[in-house]
Amino acid sequence: PDSPLARWTKSLHSLLGDQDGAHLFRTFLEREKCVDTLDFWFACNGFRQMDLKDTKTLRVAKAIYKRYIDTSSIVAKQLKPATKTFIRDNIKKQQIDSAMFDQAQTEIQTSMEESPYQMFLTSDIYLEYV
């Protein structure tokens, strides 16, 4: 009853917490040309766990900003303008905070739950795996 597959359909969060589930969802998103949203989601989680005293952390924040937010990437398109401005200002002032990407991650997660996650559960990639 609590097979991995049962967990995958429970929520996006449980799908992404499973190695095979995350891998398969990534394959699906690559095909749909929106894999950046998933990489951004994982980058936000990784960033939150970083040590704020480590100089590497500011560089990672800048790298996330440059790669996903200050571009025409699908992530930037799905974020609210105010969310992008908030992150840009933090980066400019070098004010790094573990929660600085939380709002952006929530917006991306909501949009993944609304569309690609639902599509994934009816996709041939998923059905073949099942």
């Binding site: 992404l16 917490g17 499973d18 190695q19 589930g21 995350a22 990489d39 994982f42 980058a43 936000c44 989680n45 990784g46 960033f47 766990q49 970083m50 590497k56 560089r59 990672v60 800048k62 790298a63 996330i64 440059k66 790669r67």
Partner: peptide
């Protein structure tokens, strides 16, 4: 010194689920 891409990749990988 690590490149920006390496740092980003490392950050993403650190958050990926590990095999149980």
């Amino acid at each position: 010194i690590d490149s920006e891409d390496d740092l980003l990749q490392e950050c993403i990988s650190s958050a990926m689920p590990k095999k149980k």
